[in-house]
Design a protein around this nucleic acid. Sequence first.
RNA 1: GCCCUCGUAGCUCAGUGGAUAGAGCAUCCCCCUCCUAAGGGGAGGGUCACACGUUCGAUUCGUGUCGAGGGCGCCA
Length: 556
Amino acid sequence: MPSAAFTDNKSAIAALFQQALYAAFPALRNEANSFVIDVEKPKNPDHGHFAVNSALQLAKKLGLKPRDIAAAIVNALPASDLLAGTPEIAGPGFINIRLASSAETRVVAAIFSAGENFGNSTTGGGQKVMVEFVSANPTGPLHVGHGRGAATGDTLARLLDAQGFNVSREFYYNDGGAQINNLALSVQARLRERAGIAAPFPEDGYRGQYITEIAERYAQENGADANGDRLEAVQKFAVAALRHEQDLDLKAFDVRFDVFFLESSLYTDGLVEQTVNHLVKMGHTYERDGALWLKSTEYGDDKDRVMRKSDGTYTYFAPDVAYHVTKWQRGFTRAITELGADHHGSLARVRAGLQAMEMGVPSGYPEYVLHQMITVMRGGEEVKISKRAGSYVTLRDLIDEVGCDATRYFFVMRKSDSQLTFDIDLAKSRSEDNPVYYVQYAHARICSVLGLWGGDVATLNAADLSPLVSKYESDILRTLADFPELLATAARELSPHLVCVYLADLAAKLHSFYNAEKFLVEDEKVKLARLALIAATRQVLKNGLAMLGVNAPEKM
RNA sequence: GCCCUCGUAGCUCAGUGGAUAGAGCAUCCCCCUCCUAAGGGGAGGGUCACACGUUCGAUUCGUGUCGAGGGCGCCA
């Protein structure tokens, strides 16, 4: 449900000024000269709720001084109950606009009526969009990089969903190829070791403890093949075991998927072959040195790519393209891929491959969000290994040690393109230093105050809000009013970290308010207005945390 | 070599075609007769890597240079 009731303040102001502009400068009415007023929100609160900089932009066109233009616009302004006083002309020619109290407090009523839907919109119009993320190979437990991908992708999906898109979450398994073979050989080697048969461990084998655990279970459940001679069966068992383990990790991280897509199905369904044949038919391939190449340079790739090696097997490129063809054919007119920065090269290739298919896929398909590497720190030192996985830190390690909420928040709070330092000590600390506790604490603190008051929160909906006039109250009102736009921006720019930035800001404003003045004043009218304000704030904190998949605790 | 990302306070990082570039940490000073001090207020700290362009206006956009990280080879 859209919460249009107060976001209209901005467009109403824009309409008002547009009208004034035309009245002051009728020449701008005709189309060749048309000029659209842009209303912006100044970052400095002293500059009012909104600002219009059109006078600066029009100075050259009109051949007048910016301040004179601004004055003419302000003079032509129709009367409106949205405004508190006459807008002020400032600096080189900005027009600073202050909202009337009644306009400013409308957001509270909007929050009460929309509740958990406050901030949502319908701009997506039900368009189908797929968010593909995690897509870890079933060769080991999920590591911290997958965790960052999981948190980022899941938050993106929640954001898009809240904007009215029809979102599907998908996990793509590379369940074939050399690495899976490698996995099977690694388990087999442990089985033989266990049976006392001398055999060298594969050169590039997986050495984590989990391989030994899988071998142990395989031996117990398949007594007849305790030596692991049936490699195919070993492989199937190992992949199933690891997929199961990854599922449990994702569950513990509160991340769910709608579809798990197996790479192997692309082969069994003949889609890899069909895709390659289609590219051959379209004339975008050639044979050289016994291999089949795609002329991907024709589509912006920096070199041509091999699709089928000289030994007749396909490179990963071919199924990757085939997979994305299915995304398009399944009706996903938007597709977003969340992946580690170390895989970004494959995206350019896939895009080129899709273009070569000539099936009407837009050139920017799929969109993507990259995440950079993570450094895990504990006690001032980098943590590099875990017991189970051997060479890397697992997602499970973090969830077990610092909890799901802190892990999710930390993974999303930085721009995903930035390298992230995950400080375990900080994530565990219960102090203002810890951003996730800071925000959750703000929520709990409101619950505590409302509990102390003891009244029915729903009745606050009817409170008279006119006493909300202090700087602190005004700061909070404005921030609350920004929430829908914040969500829209985060979704549009695929930037989940903006949600964290926003929540930290809102929490800080709330704490300032509490500490600046005696909060529970004697005056009943003021008290009720303030309680209504913090109840609304609580709802927004809760809605924001929900986007991150983080709990909003009532007590801490 | 080619491609991608990044370069903002001592540190970790936000942010923006506009007015005095922000937050937290760290340093220093201060604040509990309302709720959770798990908090708040204040001080200091900046050539927004550098140069040139576009613009009324550039930290933001473009080009180049320098620096950091990553990717790319019939690898997966």
